[in-house]
């Protein structure tokens, strides 16, 4: 029974997160805030979405 509660609790929390994530992305961004960017220079964590390496556009070298 305890395992069932654990799974149920995990699913509920995951569901709440998924729902809030969806609602947040559906909420329109206020006017004038479309291109907000943090002044983050970037540390060495390249997986972070704020890392400047993600803003480098791919260039064709041919």
């Amino acid at each position: 029974m305890q395992v069932f509660y654990a799974i149920l609790f995990g699913v509920v929390l995951g569901g709440i997160y998924a729902g809030l994530y969806y609602m947040n992305h559906k909420t329109p961004v206020p006017k004038g805030c479309e291109n907000l960017k943090a002044d983050c220079e970037g540390c060495k964590v390249t997986s972070c979405e704020m890392h400047p390496s993600h803003n480098i556009k791919e260039t064709n070298h041919d």
Partner: peptide, 14 residues
């Protein structure tokens, strides 16, 4: 909880 709270706060502020 932290991830959900951040999403909620961002949505409300928006």
């Amino acid at each position: 909880v932290i991830a959900s709270f951040v999403q909620f706060v961002e949505m409300v502020i928006k």
